[in-house]
C-alpha cells in the first residue's frame, strides 16, 4: 500500500509537476537518459564480448575491466538519475505499466549477474586474464549480461508505446 502513496507524492511534488507541465523538460531529460543508457550498454558489452572471446582478445581482462567499468558506472549513475526524474513526472502511470515493471525486474537481474561475476567468478581472474581459456562461469556472465541489456532496452522502448 505504501508504493502507490509514494508515487502519488512524487508526481505531485514540485519536480514531478514541473517535468510533466513543461514542454521541453521531459524530452531533454529523456535525451540525457538515452545518451547515458547507450554508453552503459555499449561499454559493458565491450567487456561482455571480451568474456566471450569475441572482441579485444589481445587485451587482458583486468585491463579492460579497469579501463571500461568506471565509464559504465558513471553513465549508469546519470541514466538512473535521469530515469528517476522521468518517473516522477507520471509515477503512478509508470508503476502500473507492465514493460516498466519488467524493466525494473531485469535491472535487478543485471545487478545480480554483475555481483556474482565480480565477487565470485572474477576472483580467479589471475589464472585466465591473458589467454583465451575463459571459464564457463565468465562466459555465462557475459552472455546473460548481453541478453539482459537487450531486453532492458526493449522494455524501455516499449514503455513509450503502451498506455
Amino acid at each position: 500500500m505504501v508504493i502507490p502513496e509514494i508515487c502519488a507524492w512524487l508526481e505531485n511534488s514540485s519536480v514531478g509537476t514541473a517535468i510533466r507541465q513543461s514542454t521541453w523538460l521531459f524530452p531533454t531529460i529523456e535525451t540525457v537518459h538515452v545518451l547515458a543508457t547507450v554508453l552503459v550498454v555499449g561499454s559493458v558489452t565491450m567487456l561482455d564480448l571480451r568474456l566471450l572471446n569475441l572482441a579485444s582478445r589481445d587485451r587482458s581482462v583486468t585491463e579492460l575491466h579497469r579501463e571500461i567499468l568506471p565509464w559504465t558506472w558513471a553513465s549508469f549513475a546519470v541514466a538512473v538519475t535521469a530515469g528517476f526524474l522521468l518517473f516522477t513526472s507520471s509515477a503512478t502511470k509508470y508503476y502500473h505499466n507492465v514493460p516498466f515493471r519488467i524493466k525494473m525486474v531485469l535491472l535487478v537481474l543485471v545487478g545480480l549477474n554483475a555481483a556474482f561475476f565480480e565477487f565470485r567468478t572474477f576472483r580467479s581472474v589471475a589464472s585466465w586474464d591473458q589467454g583465451r581459456r575463459i571459464p564457463l562461469a565468465a562466459k555465462i556472465a557475459g552472455t546473460v549480461g548481453i541478453l539482459l541489456w537487450i531486453f532492458v532496452v526493449a522494455c524501455g522502448r516499449w514503455i513509450g508505446f503502451t498506455k
Binding site: 547507450v38 554508453l39 555499449g42 565509464w71 537487450i150 532496452v153 526493449a154
Partner: peptide, 15 residues
C-alpha cells in the same frame, strides 16, 4: 529497439 542497441555500439566505440 534494434536501432538503439546499434546506437549503443557505435556511440560507445566512438566515445
Amino acid at each position: 529497439t534494434v536501432h538503439i542497441l546499434c546506437v549503443a555500439l557505435v556511440m560507445s566505440s566512438m566515445a
